[in-house]
């Protein structure tokens, strides 16, 4: 009894320790964003100082202005998520309810595309995009994010569909529903919590993406990742400004995550705790 209480306490302390460790960089980022460049550059870490909004003011006006990048991030993240779901739903439906002997291979193959380091296909992608004029174009980034997230979206939607008993789909079939009617009136309503959390995850992954954004966009389609990176310079102090920009960049997604965390957790553990 006492030993289990002690181990509960020990695990509690450990969990808090790990949580603080993970959260600390974000805390430091927040603090730095409200410092002057001199304070931010100071060798002694300071927790107590007079906060200033100077860095935010500078950051908001940087380049084309914060809102330009935020809009591109939102546009490409939302669009890629919607396109991804639209492609994943029929694919997952076919694999979940009409599997054949190649279905398992197909699933593994799709995920295996995620094993390739992105930089490995950078040159060909860059050349293709350059040729077809998709460089620095929101559509180009949208397509990249869709392709990047599609295997994950299909896997997740597939697993939510698999949780729906096949009998229910067959009952709809016998009741006279076409495939589309079965999909829209039976399968999608049942998988909605799962689809929502899949969508949220895809949205977050696309919003946070930086490798392709930085290499494939510059001005017109530049996302918040490009915006943050633009603060880096070879000379002068930029840590406070960069921190302020980072705070501005992650704020929307943190707010979204905060409000949807219940949905996220429920969706991600949907199949596990039935």
């Amino acid at each position: 009894m006492t030993s289990s209480r002690f181990s509960n306490f020990a695990f509690g302390v450990l969990a808090w320790g790990v949580a603080l460790l993970i959260f600390f960089p974000i805390l430091w980022l927040l603090l730095t964003a409200f410092k002057t460049e001199q304070q931010a550059f100071s060798v002694d870490p300071t927790f107590w100082f007079t906060p200033t909004l100077e860095s935010f003011r500078t950051a908001l006006a940087q380049g084309n202005g914060y809102w330009h990048y935020a809009w591109n991030s939102a546009l490409t993240a939302v669009a890629s998520t919607l396109v991804g779901l639209a492609l994943a739903v029929p694919a997952a439906y076919a694999m979940a309810f009409y599997p054949n002997k190649r279905t398992d291979f197909l699933l593994v193959w799709m995920v295996s595309t995620k094993f390739i380091p992105a930089v490995g296909v950078l040159i060909p992608m860059f050349l293709v995009y350059k040729t077809v004029g998709l460089l620095d174009h929101p559509l180009g980034l949208t397509l990249l994010f869709t392709a990047m997230n599609l295997p994950i979206i299909i896997w997740m939607v597939y697993s939510y569909f698999r949780d729906i008993p096949k009998d229910i789909v067959e009952a709809a079939d016998i009741d006279g529903a076409s495939i589309l009617q079965t999909l829209f009136k039976v399968v999608l309503p049942l998988a909605l919590p799962g689809l929502a959390s899949t969508g949220l995850l895809a949205l977050i992954l696309a919003w946070n993406e930086s490798f392709w954004s930085i290499t494939m966009s510059d001005h017109r389609a530049a996302t918040l990742a490009v915006y943050i990176a633009s603060f880096k310079s070879a000379e002068g102090l930029f840590w406070a400004k960069m921190s302020a920009a980072s705070v501005l960049a992650i704020a929307p997604i943190i707010v979204l995550g905060w409000f949807t965390q219940r949905q996220m957790v429920r969706g991600l553990t949907f199949g596990a705790v039935k």
Partner: peptide, 20 residues
């Protein structure tokens, strides 16, 4: 002929009711 055009009704072991 596909199931929906056979004019049959089926009761499943699991009942297969639409939960929503």
């Amino acid at each position: 002929v596909p199931p929906k055009e056979r004019d049959i009704a089926m009761v499943f072991q699991s009942y297969a009711l639409y939960p929503h």
